[in-house]
């Protein structure tokens, strides 16, 4: 019982932390910090509320397999997007096809209304 309350308190503290950190300008680290805190919350829920710690190895494998496959999906898909000409555009009128998506280079991406 006590353990659950401690975990709950930690979760709420992490919620406060993620909210607070969002108001600081950390550049790229904002995303990293937010995801790290979310991962920490997730770990707490998994290990304590879902009893993953006391669970059969199979439960660990199920979660691990799901996460691994999602990681592969992210990784290999970004191999594609990351190696196309960069689609990042400065603030502009355009919303058009991601440059390279249709086989063109960024300089071809003409403004489309």
């Amino acid at each position: 019982m006590k353990a659950y309350l401690f975990v709950f308190a930690a979760l709420m503290a992490l919620l406060g932390a993620t909210l607070g950190l969002a108001f600081l300008d950390l550049g790229a680290l904002n995303l990293v910090a937010a995801l790290a805190i979310a991962a920490a919350k997730a770990a707490l829920v998994l290990l304590f509320f879902m009893h993953l710690r006391e669970s059969d190895g199979l439960a660990w494998i199920a979660v691990g397999a799901g996460l691994t496959w999602v990681a592969i999906l992210f990784g290999l898909t970004f191999v594609d997007y990351g190696s196309r000409p960069s689609p990042r555009a400065p603030v502009t009128e355009i919303v058009g096809p991601l440059p390279g998506a249709l086989g063109e280079s960024p300089s071809d991406a003409a403004p489309v209304k």
Binding site: T18, L19, A22, F23, L24, D25, L26, N30, A34, L35, I37, A38
Partner: peptide, 10 residues
């Protein structure tokens, strides 16, 4: 939560 609400709050 962070992905929706906290993309840029500063």
């Amino acid at each position: 939560y962070p992905l929706i609400y906290l993309v840029k709050r500063c």
